[in-house]
């Protein structure tokens, strides 16, 4: 594996996480529990589309085959996407979305803080912009954890259920592939494993303050990073890629 190939795959991974997370968040449009939250969740979705666009555009440049960001977003087959499984889990109820966002944003906060110092200037630039957005995403999900966790017995149950259901999808975020090993040795990427204890500490602080038990379950699902997805992924792509696949010659 050359460094170029490693970088391409790494960018796809970051880009796909943003792309699929934006897809799920955008499903909240007109479905929020209150208009303000409809706007907040779709606003986060917008941040993610912007990030996906930047990352996939850079990936396409590194790939060097003349593809566009859209080509990478809309024309790959399922096994060629490398997002973490947690992003493709269904929208679920509001608690489920909030917990998912807390888990992801905490990881992204730690990762993108490091990537701001990447030796790859383009990655550092994207990270610099992303970190500002991630801080807001994180605060938003933390505050809702407080509200749901301490609001009513019913909302506390919902939040606890979401934490339990999503817990086994959190470990994958810290896996390291061969390409990441290579890039982190060069100071381009960062060692995900080194983020895990800090992640656990941050998440535990929020959940404990929300009267939520931290799951003791240790089995972690994996696969997305190798292109092996949940059954959700095919449905996401069927919908997302519909026009691009049905009218391959059209430009939009």
């Amino acid at each position: 594996m050359t460094q170029q190939e490693a970088l391409y795959k790494y960018l796809l991974r970051l880009g796909d996480n943003a792309l699929i997370q934006s897809y799920r968040l955008s499903e909240w449009c007109s479905r929020g529990p209150i208009l303000e939250e409809d706007l907040a969740l779709t606003n986060i979705a917008l941040d993610y589309i912007g990030r996906a666009q930047n990352l996939l555009q850079y990936a396409a440049a590194i790939e060097g085959k003349g593809h566009s960001a859209d080509h990478l977003a809309y024309r790959r087959a399922e096994h060629q996407y490398y997002n973490n499984l947690i992003t493709e889990m269904p929208r679920g109820d509001f608690a489920y979305t909030i917990v998912k966002q807390l888990f992801i944003s905490t990881f992204e906060f730690l990762l993108y803080t490091e990537l701001c110092h990447s030796k790859d200037e383009a990655i550092a630039g994207i990270a610099g912009k992303a970190i500002k957005e991630v801080r807001y995403h994180w605060t938003h999900s933390r505050d809702w954890c407080y509200r749901l966790g301490k609001g009513t017995a019913f909302s506390n149950d919902k939040l606890q259920q979401a934490v339990n259901d999503l817990w086994m999808y959190t470990g994958e975020q810290f896996e390291m592939g061969a390409e990441e090993e290579m890039l982190s040795a060069e100071g381009i990427a960062f060692d995900n494993k080194a983020l895990q204890s800090k992640w656990l500490e941050m998440v535990s602080t929020v959940l404990t303050a929300s009267n939520i038990q931290i799951p003791t379950e240790s089995y972690m699902q994996t696969g997305g990073r190798k292109g092996v997805h949940t059954e959700n992924m095919g449905h996401i792509l069927a919908e997302m890629q519909y026009l691009q696949r049905a009218y391959p010659d059209a430009t939009w």
Partner: peptide, 11 residues
């Protein structure tokens, strides 16, 4: 969304 609004109000 009613339970979410109730939780927010209770909090």
């Amino acid at each position: 969304g009613a339970w979410v609004r109730e939780a927010a109000a209770a909090y």
